[in-house]
């Protein structure tokens, strides 16, 4: 792809990003950050391509670590965002103190 096309995409995406993200309220800035973090994990694609092209141990190692890092980024990022946003969703039954709000990890991934 010609460099100029790629730079065009980059500039347009920057404008879209600024427009969309400016509308995110401060209340949601932490989930926004962890969600964009997860999106950034798309570098995994690069890792897949490096490993795909490699046939030498060092390249294999580099690529596999990149895949490992990218996957942590994606899986962890989206899941933790989901967990956080789940807390912002209004609970339908508000008068039900059955779930003792215990600050431990017991309430993790409450789906």
């Amino acid at each position: 792809m010609p460099l100029i096309t790629e730079i065009t995409i980059f500039v347009l995406a920057a404008f879209v990003g600024f427009e969309v993200i400016s509308k995110v309220p401060t209340t949601l800035h932490t989930p926004l950050m962890s969600q964009t973090n997860a999106i950034h994990g798309i570098v995994l694609l690069g890792g897949l391509i490096v490993v795909g092209l490699s046939n030498f141990w060092l390249d294999n190692l580099i690529g596999t670590i990149a895949i490992f890092f990218g996957t942590i980024n994606i899986v962890g990022g989206f899941m933790v965002t989901d967990r956080m946003l789940g807390m912002f969703v209004r609970k339908p039954k508000k008068e039900e103190p059955a779930e003792k709000p215990d600050a431990g990890d017991g309430d993790a991934g409450a789906e």
């Binding site: 792809m1 995406a13 950034h40 798309i42």
Partner: peptide
Amino acid sequence: GIELDNTALIVAGTLVGSSGTIL
């Protein structure tokens, strides 16, 4: 994304860059 000619990477990376800059 530019080095790998991958549009999804370019756009995704730029979105994250915008978000980080705004914050």
